[in-house]
Design a protein around this nucleic acid. Structure first.
Length: 423
RNA sequence: GGAGAGGUGUCUGAGUGGUCGAAAGAGCACGCCUGGAAAGUGUGUAUACAUCAAAAGUGUAUCGAGGGUUCGAAUCCCUCCCUCUCCGCCA
């Protein structure tokens, strides 16, 4: 969430930036500022009264110790009104803060100056395109049919034991999953990301820290009995590793990678675009996360983008990089690149990665800070990216690499799969 | 699931009504000492908010969370949360 002090000092800029994000309730900014003003005034008065009451209490203690009971009693008699006022002002302050926070969490992050103006996915800018469309055999199949033909993924079996969107990977399909996970983790390690295996369920505080809550609880599976959420991405547990932490400047950047399964309710999705592996309730993903010094975060974002692109290149996939426009960017992001691979049989682009810099938007909620050169605490920047999400990579691999003889496994994966062909 | 113990600063740990943001030790930082290091020694070492142009300073809050008693709460009372130990179950 945005820092109130920043909004206070940069009202015009905040409004101008929110407009780029196509934010519909700019009036919230002034409401926040008014409440902030209230808050400061109220706290000021409360602090003053509390100071008087504290001083009196201290004096009473001294008088009692000196055995001066009469004066102590006289002073006691005067404390009643302060007590009342402290309570009243305290309640008022709490109410103001509650309202302030309710409004504050509704404000999205401010987009970086390089973010293109736009309203929807149509307005995203293609920043880079790599590779060329593969030539497929005449009888080319979409991945869900390939998966059935070679017995790689059984969607119906998943429906039986769980429901739609929970595929069962079988045979070489299962091995391919494991190979991709291991390959992505190894590549992340080479790039300096330290692997962690976090819990797959998180508490409410974690969901709030990375901004899934309070807004997007509908996207997450919730375990009512224990008040825990199934993670929609490893971003949530991994970034929350550093909640309430003050890092040393020399510890930055913190770089972690994690493979987790991800769970998304994706309520209301249907149709051809969600067929097969295109959209699942449970899927595998390797995520990379960084905690960065504010001066370095954009440089690191570019590095993460290049890391993801390197993976796609080594897998031999045609892809493009999108610079998301303000209207299509996530709530918490300041700058996002989406990577999409070309799915040759479906004849469409599939999003396989999203790399974002959240600046201090998450760290402000997480209270994730570092000690800067002046020895003061300062909010760190958080970044993350998928490197990579498996299902659509698998979809693209199957479709784009299909031949008359079967499906060719990319060279870099063979040491992991231990087979070169599916077929 | 049953029984018990406990939550204090970076850590260990003292503190059962006032002088406690909190002893002591460890750690860490800086200095002295040293040819250099170790040892020794000295000093410092929470966070947030407010006030201020800013810093200094000052005020307020925070000893798991919330509420209560009291002039005054880390300390007493209530509720909740969490952790640990033992037993049971179990990969």
């Amino acid at each position: 969430m945005l820092q109130v002090s920043y909004i206070r000092d940069n009202r015009e800029k905040v409004l101008e930036r929110l407009a780029v994000k196509n934010f519909k309730q700019p009036e919230l900014v002034d409401e926040v500022l008014a409440l902030d003003n209230d808050r400061r005034q109220t706290q000021n008065r409360l602090d003053g009264v509390a100071a008087e009451a504290n001083a009196a209490a201290k004096q009473i203690g001294e008088l009692m110790r000196a055995g001066n009971k009469e004066e102590a009693e006289a002073l006691k008699a005067k404390t009643g009104s302060w007590k009342e006022e402290v309570k009243t002002l305290g309640n008022a302050l709490a109410a103001i803060e509650t309202e302030l926070n309710q409004k504050l969490v509704l404000l999205p992050n401010l987009p970086h100056s390089s973010v293109p103006v736009g309203y929807s996915a149509e307005d995203n800018v293609v920043a880079f395109e790599y590779g060329s469309k593969p030539e497929l055999p005449a009888n080319a199949l979409p991945h869900w049919e390939l998966a059935a033909k070679y017995k790689l993924i059984d969607f119906e079996l998943g429906v039986k034991i769980t429901g739609a969107g929970f595929p069962v990977y079988t045979g070489k399909g299962a091995k391919l999953q494991r190979a991709l996970i291991a390959y992505f983790l190894d590549e992340a390690e080479k790039a300096g990301f330290a692997e962690v295996i976090p819990p797959l369920v998180v508490n409410e505080a974690s969901g709030f820290g990375t901004t899934q809550l309070p807004d997007k609880e509908g996207q997450m599976y919730y375990i009512n009995e224990d008040k825990l959420y199934l993670i929609p991405t490893a971003e949530v547990p991994v970034t929350n590793l550093y909640r309430d932490v003050i890092l040393k400047a020399e510890e930055l950047p913190v770089k972690n990678s994690a493979y987790t399964q991800c769970f998304r309710r994706e309520a209301g999705s249907y149709g051809a675009h969600v067929r097969g592996l295109n959209r699942l309730h449970q899927f595998d993903k390797v995520e990379i996360v960084q905690i960065a010094h504010p001066d370095k975060s954009y440089e690191l974002l570019e590095q993460m983008s290049l890391h993801v692109q390197g993976l796609l290149q080594k897998l031999g996939l045609m892809y493009r990089v999108l610079r998301l426009c303000g209207g299509d960017m996530g709530f918490a992001s300041a700058l996002t690149y989406d990577m999409e691979t070309w799915s040759a049989a479906q004849q469409r682009w599939l999003e396989v990665s999203s790399v974002s810099n959240f600046e201090t938007f998450q760290s402000n909620r997480l209270k994730l800070r570092f000690r800067n050169a002046e020895g003061k605490t300062q909010l760190a920047h958080t970044l993350n990216g998928s490197a990579l999400a498996l299902p659509r990579i698998v979809a693209t691999l199957l479709e784009n690499n299909q031949t008359e003889q079967g499906i060719r496994i990319p060279e870099v994966l063979v040491p992991y799969t231990k087979f070169e062909w599916i077929g």
